Computed example of a mutant assay.
Amino acid sequence: MKISSFFLVAVFISVEVCGQSINRFHDSKTIDSFLKYQSGRKRPLILAHRGGPASSDTENSIPTFTKTAKALPDAIIEMDVRMTRDSNFVLLHDATLDRESNVTGDVAQWSLPDLKKIRLKTLSGELTDQPIPTFGDILAWNQNRYVLALDVKPGTDPVRVMNEVRKHQSEYCVFVICYSLADAQRVRDKYPALWLAVGVNSMADLERLETNPLASGRLIALTPQKPQPVAFYERLHKLGIPCSIGTYGPTQLDEKPLSEATSGYRELFRQGGDIVTTDRPIEVSALF
Rank of each mutant, 00 (worst) to 15 (best):
G136C: 03
S244P: 00
D86T: 02
G52P: 04
E210W: 08
E59F: 02
V9S: 14
I76F: 06
L287E: 14
D205V: 11
A140Y: 13
S111F: 09
G105C: 11
D74E: 14
P213A: 02
K67L: 09
S202M: 12
N144P: 05
T134F: 05
S39M: 08
I177A: 07
Q185Y: 06
Y172V: 04
T122S: 08
G272H: 02
K238M: 12
I62V: 13
I138G: 00
D94Y: 08
V187H: 03
S285G: 02
S87L: 13
D205Q: 06
S216A: 14
W195P: 00
V230L: 08
W195H: 02
L181D: 09
D157C: 14
P229Y: 15
I76E: 03
K67M: 15
Q109Y: 03
L45G: 00
T277F: 09
F175H: 12
K42H: 14
P158A: 06
V152T: 11
L181V: 07
H26F: 13
S285M: 05
M203I: 14
N102D: 15
L112H: 04
F25T: 00
Q109P: 01
G249Y: 07
I62W: 05
R50H: 10
L196E: 02
A231K: 14
A75D: 11
P154M: 13
V147D: 03
C173V: 01
V81K: 09
A286M: 10
V174T: 09
Q143E: 13
K238W: 08
S87P: 01
K29V: 13
I220V: 11
A95M: 14
A215Q: 12
A184R: 00
A197T: 03
Y146E: 00
P242G: 07
D254W: 04
Y37G: 03
F89N: 04
E126V: 08
E78D: 01
P44Y: 12
E171G: 06
L222Q: 08
F288R: 08
Q271V: 06
V147H: 07
G105M: 09
G125Q: 11
A140F: 01
A140R: 13
K2H: 13
T84M: 09
G240K: 03
I282K: 04
D27M: 10
A75V: 05
R188V: 01
A231I: 10
D189M: 09
P73M: 03
D274F: 07
L150N: 04
R85L: 15
S61C: 04
K121P: 03
L72S: 01
F6V: 14
R85W: 12
G199E: 12
H168P: 02
D106G: 10
E78Y: 02
V11E: 10
Y146P: 00
W195Q: 04
S87G: 02
R235L: 05
P63Q: 12
D274V: 07
Q228D: 05
T128R: 08
S5N: 13
R24N: 09
T134A: 12
